[in-house]
């Protein structure tokens, strides 16, 4: 009935979509700022998976040239994602710094409590 080989070949894409959707839900629906930022970094990581999965060649090896090896995976997505990770942690730190300042200003990092405080003022 179900072709497991077919599912296995599409499994990377399926899991990538699942991770993206779940982390998008965390970012949209959860009220806590730290949880939102965790969701954001999960989303970022799922994008890494989206880029790296097509770069793989089954039977290939990492793109470091050696004489005995003929097939290499595609190095180009690796370069893009390598810089994206380090930039990602720098921007994450920026977001966390903003969370710390929000805690100082409002005394809370819950979205609805901040909205309530803003509405009263």
């Amino acid at each position: 009935m179900i072709d497991f080989g077919e599912i296995l070949l599409k499994y990377n894409a399926i899991v990538t979509v699942f991770l993206m959707v779940t982390s998008l839900y965390i970012v949209i629906a959860k009220g806590n700022m730290i949880k939102k930022l965790v969701g954001l970094s999960l989303f970022q990581t799922s994008v890494y998976l989206l880029y790296l999965s097509p770069a793989k060649i089954v039977g290939g090896t990492a793109p470091i040239i050696a004489d005995a090896i003929m097939v290499y995976s595609n190095p180009l997505p690796h370069v893009l994602i390598l810089t994206a990770i380090v930039v990602g942690v720098a921007t994450l730190a920026l977001g966390l710094a903003l969370v710390v300042r929000i805690q100082d200003a409002y005394g809370t990092i819950e979205e609805d409590e901040i909205f309530r405080a803003e509405g009263d003022a």
Binding site: A62, I64, L82, T83, I85, V86
Partner: peptide, 12 residues
């Protein structure tokens, strides 16, 4: 240049 690595990884 010869193995996995580089400036980004070493800095981290």
């Amino acid at each position: 240049d010869y193995g996995p690595g580089g400036g980004f990884q070493a800095g981290a």
